[in-house]
């Protein structure tokens, strides 16, 4: 087991694309079914258009940065506010999961996005990043 699985840690996976303005409309067209799928699942909490072309979406705790120069999927724990008529809202805490579990889901999203972009011509990448963000208690600093 990774030591990151025993602490409060979340992943990001990113693929940096070579900027290709000629492919912008094709990227947009190819990525839309992925965004539609997230929308239909009811998981999209926020969606913003970025720069000349690109989207930033938050869905089910995952943040997707989908641009013509970068694809990134990251996770952050967030507390959902649930409105209740006539009284204060309630708050739903997310389930605590291991770094590896979240990474598995992150990679699955990256797989879907890359599959969507497979048919775009002249798209190149020059960097792949894998991130671990952890917040540790003082007495849980590895190695234990």
């Amino acid at each position: 087991m990774l030591w990151l699985d025993s602490v409060f840690a979340v992943p990001t996976v990113a693929v940096r694309l070579e900027t290709n303005y000629g492919a912008v409309s094709d990227i947009q067209k190819r990525i839309m079914p992925f965004i539609d799928k997230l929308h239909k699942s009811g998981r999209i909490q926020r969606i913003e258009q970025k720069e000349i072309w690109g989207y930033s979406l938050i869905a089910g705790g995952f943040t997707f940065h989908l641009r013509n120069d970068n694809i990134a999927v990251s996770y952050a724990y967030s507390v959902d506010e649930i409105s209740r008529p006539g009284t204060l809202p309630s708050f739903e805490m997310p389930e605590l999961r291991t770094y590896s579990e979240i990474m598995k889901e992150t990679c699955e999203y990256v797989r879907e996005i890359l599959l969507s972009l497979d048919a775009v011509d002249d798209l190149r990448y020059d960097r792949i990043g894998v991130v671990a963000d952890a917040n540790l208690e003082g007495d849980s600093l590895p190695p234990e």
């Binding site: 694309l17 890359l114 497979d118 775009v120 671990a132 952890a134 208690e137």
Partner: peptide, 19 residues
């Protein structure tokens, strides 16, 4: 607590075609 961020990267010397 203690915040740690590890950002591991592979940099390709020549861009690779996305496939």
């Amino acid at each position: 607590g203690c915040r740690i961020s590890l950002d591991w990267q592979r940099m390709f010397r020549e861009p690779k075609e996305l496939n």
